[in-house]
């Protein structure tokens, strides 16, 4: 069932385009650095100034650039569409007249959205890596702590970072899944979900709301960078994963409470 669900999602043109754009972000960054002929003067996104020394950093620069806006937007589109999109197409009523049960269908949807989150971040990392390898030399990787690790370990840590970013997006994805059970209008669900991401990011930047900062699901979105320290700093990553787990637990059960009892009228 999950495979059929995944096949349905990834065959969609919209999803292919989104993944393509995600992969193009770091590639465009790398190309910009290449054309401007050298490192930018220490400004701009972190990791970008390292791209011309080591093409591998294009992947990390891509993640840094995509995490505040584009990744949450894409996740909002896919998670907001999860149930509302099926309702909108009318396919929801046919899925539910198959004897799988609503809880199971919702679980499959949740798993699909999670897989998509990973696909999205891996697309960014891969796009960056490929562009970086083509345009720039690659080699040993300098960590944020000023130590040097092998290229292989650097790439491994980059993909681990992509995994962490994907996990960081799961809280938002579960909000999207819940919102998606509330309406038959997918666009509304997507916009509302993206709205939550913006709200969380804004609150996280307002000092007056400092008390709730650690509870905002966007708060630790840059924690993936801690994988590039030596020793790796786990505090924020663990805090991030715990927070996301909390959001998932609350919003996934809310989605379940709503979806397993709602009238499917579409």
């Amino acid at each position: 069932m999950l495979l059929a669900e995944l096949a349905t999602l990834f065959r969609r043109l919209r999803v292919k385009v989104l993944l393509g754009v995600l992969a193009a972000i770091p590639a465009a960054l790398a190309l910009a650095v290449y054309l401007s002929g050298g490192p930018s003067s220490g400004r701009g996104p972190t990791f970008l100034d390292q791209v011309s020394h080591n093409g591998m950093f294009a992947a990390l620069a891509g993640l840094t650039v995509a995490i505040p806006f584009f990744l949450p937007l894409v996740v909002a589109v896919v998670s907001g569409d999860a149930i509302a999109g099926e309702a909108n197409l009318g396919t929801l009523r046919y899925l539910l007249t198959r004897p799988s049960g609503r809880t199971r269908l919702l679980a499959t949807k949740a798993a699909t959205v999670a897989v998509f989150c990973l696909a999205a971040t891996v697309a960014v990392a891969l796009g960056g890596l490929i562009a970086g390898v083509i345009l720039f030399p690659i080699g040993k990787v300098v960590t944020l702590s000023g130590t040097t690790i092998s290229l292989l370990e650097g790439i491994a840590r980059t993909f681990a970072a992509a995994g962490i970013v994907a996990a960081s997006l799961l809280g938002l994805a579960s909000i999207g899944l819940f919102v998606s059970t509330l309406t038959d209008a997918p666009v509304g669900a997507m916009a509302a979900t993206a709205g939550f991401a913006v709200l969380s990011a804004v609150l996280d930047n307002v000092p007056q709301t400092r008390a709730i900062h650690p509870w905002l699901f966007t708060h630790h979105w840059l924690a993936f960078g801690d994988l590039l320290r030596s020793p790796v700093r786990w505090t924020d990553i663990v805090a991030d994963l715990r927070l996301q787990l909390g959001y998932i637990a609350v919003f996934a059960t809310m989605a379940w409470a709503r979806f397993s009892t709602k009238d499917v009228l579409a």
Binding site: M1, A4, E5, T91, L95, R98
Partner: peptide, 8 residues
């Protein structure tokens, strides 16, 4: 897709 959506 619809056939696979049920365990039956």
């Amino acid at each position: 897709r619809f056939d696979a959506a049920g365990p039956d």
